[in-house]
Write a protein that binds this DNA or RNA. Sequence first.
DNA 1: TCTGGGGTCCTAGGACCC
DNA 2: TCTGGGGTCCTAGGACCC
Length: 432
Amino acid sequence: MYALVDGNNFYVSCERVFRPSLNGRPVVVLSNNDGCAIARSNEAKALGIAMGAPWFEIKHMEFGDGLVGLSANFVLYGDMSDRMHSLAAGLGPTQEIYSIDESFIGLHGVRGDLTKRARAVRDRINQWTGIPCGIGIARTKTLAKLANHIAKTAERKPGSYPADLATVCNLAALPASDLDAVLGTTLVEEVWGVGRKIAAQLHEGDIHTVLDLVRMDPATVRRRWSVVLERTVRELQGMPCIELDDAPSPKKEIACTRSFGKPITDLGPLLQAVSEFASRAGEKLRKQGSLASEVLVFAHTSPFRPGPRFNKSVVVPLRRPTADTGDLVLAATHGIRRIYAEGYDLIKAGVMLLDLVPGSVLQHELDLEDDDCADRSKLMTAMDAINGRYGKGTVHVASTGATEKVREWGMRQERRTPQYTTRWEDVPVARA
DNA sequence: TCTGGGGTCCTAGGACCC
DNA sequence: TCTGGGGTCCTAGGACCC
């Protein structure tokens, strides 16, 4: 048996904890550069604002409708998330933190009335953090997700489901006929694992509600769609196919990408941006104790705007796996020079660290007996500590110390890719 | 004027090996 | 005339998630 605990309209709820005057008003939290809505209060949803709606399209609602748009504060949300998850953990013996606002709880061996217990945990989270939650309980993770959806919808739209399913919905406690009725009024697109494409295909095949989907033959589903959807169907039928992952393995890739507030056309600012991304990605990499073997860099123009299109990426192999910001920045800037072309309004760029292997800078340097490495490793550790305490970007790697490496690296690369030459004056110098 | 930033898993097809 | 079969690895692309 599983529970899914999910904070309602999470980012908006976090903001409301500290600004109670926002209660009852339509509120959206906006992405980077105030681009689009990434969280909506119930009132904002009632206005018909879609997830991902561009701010420029909904901004006019600030006036007649009293809509409030807030710039995101991810540090705050992360902190609130930790508190919420630690309270949710009280529901059962195991927990999988699935996202910033959701965790699955394994309920194996928990005795007594699960619904009552869930209500108590929900109340505690609300009292201690101020975040309202929905809790879904069922035999499988997919059903628990669905139960959670029902719990939240029943609360938000009275009449959509039986009122006693609001806020906490235990599908396992429902008589079979009631369960069928609930599944029969829920559309397939609400199911975890059914996205836009597959939902459209299901509707074409006259499969509209979750009840329709549950009654399908898994073998047929596998033949017509995939093993993935087959697993979803089995989970909906009550057969657990997706286990609780309470000890998540380290990330297999780490990315840092951003849209720019204003388009970038010149190489200089692009190099600066990419250096920053590589450096941030490096922090994440060291935090999880991994080394990267390859660095991918990309940049592209806006897919929404007319004009010449540019969309390129390149994978730069590293000589050896590393977590050294200097190495990562060099690889990333090398890559961006390779793909850069003049005359494009670039709207977004990013760095991804690929082919990650376990290992720390420290451990790694012992094997190499590279004198330089010990200092660099201490430097990375110190940098992460300072940036952790005083905020991101308080210190970065300046490239003067890296010049020799650039020279060496550039020459190595030049042998392999003769069309490329490094120009030293282009190497970005980060400011302290 | 203005459209997020992360991730994962699966599949198909080609290269390569014995 | 006749041109294997099975396994593994890699990559690109698609679909999904929050």
